[in-house]
Design a protein around this nucleic acid. Structure first.
Length: 563
RNA sequence: UGUCUUAUGGUGUAAUGGUAGCACUGCAGUUUCUGGAUCUGCCUGUCUAAGUUCGAAUCUUAGUAAGACAACCA
């Protein structure tokens, strides 16, 4: 799990980096660069968070700044320590280390004191109206709000009531603290936003029942940034309208030239994917997936289990960039990024996922030869290994056709193919079962065509992967496809469960892999020749090898066969 | 009948007043002890209209379209 040696590529300049460089040039904040990644510990991280993480930590790294992890834990109703731990593991797995770890709850006292200060200045008041009434008085986007009857209550009364709010004697919803700004503002967030509400029914995961009044996001987030010395507070586009309020709160309290700056970027939208926490939770709870780390889930845990490397995720984030345009990113680009990254490192192994037996009739019975084969043609340092070859082997059913069309360069009656790393063989016959399916293929081999021998250079059109029948390990292979069958499930008006792709998981139990895979470690990734990238599932055991398909190779023929 | 933001090939993203480039997809080809990978080529784009300028994707105005905002969520 711990993986701190991941290489994180330097991104090309984006508009946020341009802002950062301008701020540096202008000498702002004494040339200091500080960011933060501020998750609320109320769920698991997904690939959308990975985008934010790459930006927050990446900016700090590229500009000799620091990036802190801060849990935005101001709402105990939704938060849990379970998520705090999982979030940290996922960030580390992505290859990042935070300088400090903070919690918004660390600032509860400071925030409280500043709120008192604001009340004393007459800029905040206690409202005792119901949530419904307050909402009604906010007006609408086109109609100005009306002022609360409590808006002008005396400072002393406000102070006394604010203290009351934190005693536990005040019922939830009975009173709130509001900033006194402008009920007629064209920005809804300026219409006397709530700063504090009472929550006494849930313990906070860190402070227990110490506090009964909790700060709201708009107040707590900006001030937390300010307390920590954040210079660039990066968040997603939907917080754009919050920025004036963010700045307003900063203005109330700042006492030097330093000020944090909020910059918004586009969140990640992936085709064929839902990333809403609510929907992901539903998928898990209703058993539509096996859990938060189901290989089909867009969670960091799911991607990890599926065989995505941290490097491949960085590669993807690097490709999609950061802009202010609400984009729909093609899942195909993610898959491309994964292939590109895994291609450099994945060990090539022989595996046959839809086997048919092939007997080499002129090969001595009982003879076994160890054939040398390269681990990775892209990387010489990966070395070679030996695989056993014998009279009876398995090949892919798709690699043999009785009536082969002209462009079919694999095996067919009277045709020759190269067995990868071994001999050239010629098909001399086959047998079919009662359904007409081929049950066994007969070949003869040419002993002088063994790989590496002088006579081996004879050209044949096709090369097939294979495993020795008596040496192969039986394995279970799980093929994954996109979870949803529509391009933009989030925008589809139908219930998202109706949009699930019924073929998103296909389990193959009659698969054979070469014996070297017995020593594979959990999550190790491999390229199965001409099939795709796979990794060993954590639930595997020596008795039952389970491989997850990370992504298929971009071979239209193979793709068709795998469906 | 509001405020804020955005608009570049099918998709994503560069070009910060000076030749519209890159990647993905698609198509065609090359090559290989697998048709993958590699390599090569091709296709397709500045939302509309006015203005400023020697020159506009870029600046201005208007229009059009899209997104965000009216949680005691973050």
């Amino acid at each position: 799990m711990e993986n701190t040696n991941v290489e994180v590529p330097k991104k090309s300049l984006n508009f946020i980096e341009a802002f950062v460089e301008q701020d540096l040039k202008d000498g702002k904040n004494d040339g200091r660069i500080q960011t933060r990644f501020p998750p609320e510990p109320n769920g698991y991280l997904h690939i959308g968070h990975a985008k934010a993480i790459c930006l927050d930590f990446g900016i700090a790294r590229n500009y000799n700044g620091i990036c802190n992890l801060r849990f935005d834990d101001t709402n105990p109703v939704k938060e849990d320590v379970e998520y705090v731990d999982a979030i940290q593991e996922d960030i580390k797995w992505l290859g990042y280390n935070w300088s400090n770890i903070y919690y918004a709850s660390d600032y509860f006292q400071q925030l409280w004191d500043l709120a008192v200060e604001l009340i004393k200045q007459g800029k905040a008041y206690i409202d005792e109206q119901s949530a419904e009434t307050i909402a009604k008085q906010k007006g609408t986007t086109t109609v100005a709000g009306t002022e609360s009857p409590y808006r002008n209550r005396p400072v002393e009364e406000n102070l006394a009531l604010f203290l009351q709010m934190n005693t536990g004697k005040i019922a939830e919803g009975a009173m709130v603290l509001r900033a006194k700004i402008d009920m007629a503002s064209s920005n809804m967030h300026f219409r006397d936003p709530l700063m504090y509400r009472v929550i006494n029914s849930h313990p906070h995961h860190r402070t227990g029942y110490t506090w009964k009044a909790y700060p709201m996001y708009d107040y707590a987030h900006g001030q937390s940034d300010y307390f920590e010395g954040v210079t660039h507070s990066l968040c997603t586009l939907e917080f754009e309208v919050h920025r004036p309020l963010y700045d307003w709160f900063i203005d109330q309290f700042k006492d030097s030239d330093y000020r944090p700056r909020q910059i918004e970027f586009n969140r990640l939208n992936l085709t064929y994917t839902v990333m809403s926490k609510r929907k992901m939770l539903q998928l898990v709870q209703e058993g539509l997936v096996s859990g938060w780390d189901d290989p089909r889930m867009p969670t960091i845990g799911g991607l990890r289990r599926r065989g995505y490397s941290p490097d491949s995720i960085h590669n993807f984030i690097d490709k999609i960039g950061f802009t202010k345009f609400e984009a729909q990113n093609d899942i195909g680009l993610l898959e491309h990024a994964v292939r590109e990254s895994l291609n450099k490192t994945a060990k090539r192994v022989n595996a046959v996922i839809n086997p048919v037996k092939l007997i080499i009739t002129n090969y001595p019975e009982g003879q076994v030869e160890m054939m040398e084969t390269v681990n990775n043609p892209e990387d010489e340092s990966a070395g070679t290994r030996e695989i056993p070859f014998s009279r009876e082997i398995f090949i892919e059913r798709e690699d043999f056709m009785i009536d082969a069309p002209k462009k079919f360069f694999r095996l067919a009656p009277d045709k020759e193919v190269r067995l990868k790393s071994a001999y050239i063989v010629k098909c001399t016959g086959y047998e079919s079962d009662e359904n007409g399916d081929v049950s066994v293929i007969y070949c003869e081999y040419y002993p002088e065509t063994k790989s590496g021998m002088p006579e081996a250079n004879r050209k044949v059109k096709g090369t097939l992967h294979w495993v020795s029948a008596s040496h192969a390990l039986k394995a279970e292979v799980r093929l994954y496809d996109r979870l949803f069958s529509v391009e933009n499930p989030s925008a589809d008006p139908r219930d998202f469960r109706e949009l699930l792709n019924p073929d998103s998981l296909k389990v193959l139990t009659e698969c054979y892999v070469e014996p070297s895979l017995l020593t594979a470690q959990s999550l190790d990734h491999f390229q199965f020749q001409r099939i795709g990238y796979f990794n060993l599932d954590p639930d595997s055991s020596p008795d039952k090898l389970i491989f997850n398909r990370t992504v298929s190779l971009k071979d239209s023929w193979a793709k068709e066969q795998l469906r």
